[in-house]
Amino acid sequence: MAPRKILLVDDSETILQMEQMILEKSCYELVMARNGEEGVAKALETRPDLILMDVVMPKMNGFDAVRHIRENVQTRGVPIVMVTSKAEAESMETGYESGCSDYIIKPIDSLELVAKVKNLLGE
């Protein structure tokens, strides 16, 4: 069985590396994007099983990226977890209204991230 594919969308290399380090242990195939626009393109191109999406990014923010992903029939059903800071957490009402599935607050806790990923992948 092919490994589940997760798309990581973040403009911070540090966060991408951290997410990669945590998720590689669970043998997921990982794809990276470094802004919202690239995230939308990669979502269409790679059809991931789940997306981790940062909020504040250049070119296109995470909420807009989620809206675009949800508007496309080929990607509208993919689970999306927003990765947000505490200061941005109060804006998660917007995140849910954009179409995200859940959220996690930085600094990322590995146990929480894996639990939410597994939950949304039905594992």
């Binding site: 689970p79 599935s101 859940d102 639990a115 939410k116 939950n119 949304l120 039905g122």
Partner: peptide, 12 residues
């Protein structure tokens, strides 16, 4: 949020 999993007792 995922309909396919909503009936499962072990979702988070």
């Amino acid at each position: 949020v995922l309909e396919a999993f909503r009936s499962r007792e072990n979702h988070l």
